[in-house]
Write a protein that binds this DNA or RNA. Structure first.
Lengths: 216, 216
DNA sequence: ACCTAAGCGTAACGAACGTTACGGTTCGGA
DNA sequence: TCCGAACCGTAACGTTCGTTACGCTTAGGT
């Protein structure tokens, strides 16, 4: 499995990227039920080429997940001069970015496929986890620690603090989306929910109590 | 689809329950890849019987989800005499119960199947949601409101308050389990995590600040 | 101009699996 | 005792789909 593309590093060519984008589009449309034939037809390439490039079906799915993961970008933050305002805005942006990413049809479809494959020993779920939840933690923990160093936050373990923040903004959104709940419409209130979660996190872990703003 | 068992109410017979338990066991073992043949063999029944009972494969999966959902029980609480100690204990039990349920192999497998089916328009995900997350909310919100009436809690919307509590104890546990993360071992620390989440929830929404206990 | 590699389109093979059909067996009731 | 319904075990059918193979076209290098 996965002959032409080794498990790490090698970036797919432009043509290959176009094929992987087709796979993503088909994921969003039909979920896991993506056949090699449908990919080849939509991408106007031959199945033989698919097998030459990706080895087998699992390799193609693997490359697709990596391709999508390589595109999620984070806006780096300036940790040197950090005050309560910039910290709050940074946390709100992180939360809002996360909420908007996991609400996108592409992300939902990708997570569904990864979860379906995770039933076996497939590493797809781990890849999604590594590039989603854990990548977020790696980016956010330095911010939290800088906030603590600046006397703005108080906590012992940055991992625990991050998981608290994660729970406050993620709540039940992801599981409801994955299970197909249509009564949830997070796209409209992302800003408000991110602000709310940040407010609550600062109420729990802020060194100085936030002045005059009640957690509605 | 689903001929013999109408979509609601009718309870399966003991023999049918045994078959559904076999399906659950196979879910836990092999995930979504459960064939009618494997079910018939393990359950020592004929495939013709399966089709007579459940209509088709989707009907069988449907009945399985309902069967498992019918078994999750909640311990009712006495809302009349509620003080801070009993409220705290009640919240901790809810959180601990939820964490232990979603950590069980059966629940993980069931959620994976439901999420996989949710890609199409299948109602499996909605059923799981209805009997999991929403059932929890229906049970917990009266408790929260009773706590508010007793002057122990302060919040505007019980739904919002519940989602905050949900986020505080669920955090990233469910998505990590679903994606196959093996570095997470919630079974050992469920009590501590439930107590921690309850502590944080009371810090956010408790009317009287909890005396002398720092949120570690 | 020729050769080779890459790639497209299509056909075909084979396995897995949902679904149906059939013959034999058990068991409760008339 | 006899009948019929329910059920078991197994075989068979048809579809889907992953995988492979083949013929043809195109482009770049010598």
């Amino acid at each position: 499995m996965n002959v032409a593309l080794p498990v790490s590093s090698t970036e797919p060519t432009a043509r290959q990227q176009a094929v992987l984008d087709v796979v993503l589009a088909l994921f969003a449309e039909q979920g896991d039920r993506v056949t090699m034939d449908a990919v080849a037809r939509r991408a106007s390439c031959s199945k033989e080429t698919l097998y030459k490039w990706f080895g087998d079906r699992e390799g193609m799915l693997n490359a697709t997940v990596r391709w999508q993961a390589s595109r999620v970008g984070f806006t780096p933050v300036d940790l040197a001069r950090l005050d309560l305002v910039s910290l709050r805005r940074c946390l709100e942006e992180f939360a809002a970015n996360w909420l908007s990413v996991i609400s996108s049809p592409t992300s939902i479809a990708l997570n569904r496929v990864a979860i379906g494959q995770a039933a076996g020993g497939a590493p797809l779920g781990i890849i999604v986890l590594e590039n989603g939840r854990f990548a977020l933690g790696k980016r956010l923990k330095p911010v939290l620690e800088a906030g603590r160093d600046a006397g703005l936050l108080a906590f012992e373990d940055s991992e625990t603090a991050f998981r608290t923040f994660f729970g406050l903004f993620a709540r039940d959104v992801q599981i409801r989306l994955l299970l197909g709940d249509r009564t949830i419409q997070p796209s409209l209130r992302i800003k408000e929910e991110a602000a709310h979660a940040t407010q609550q996190f600062l109420a729990l872990h802020g060194a100085t109590p936030p002045s005059g703003v009640a957690s509605a």
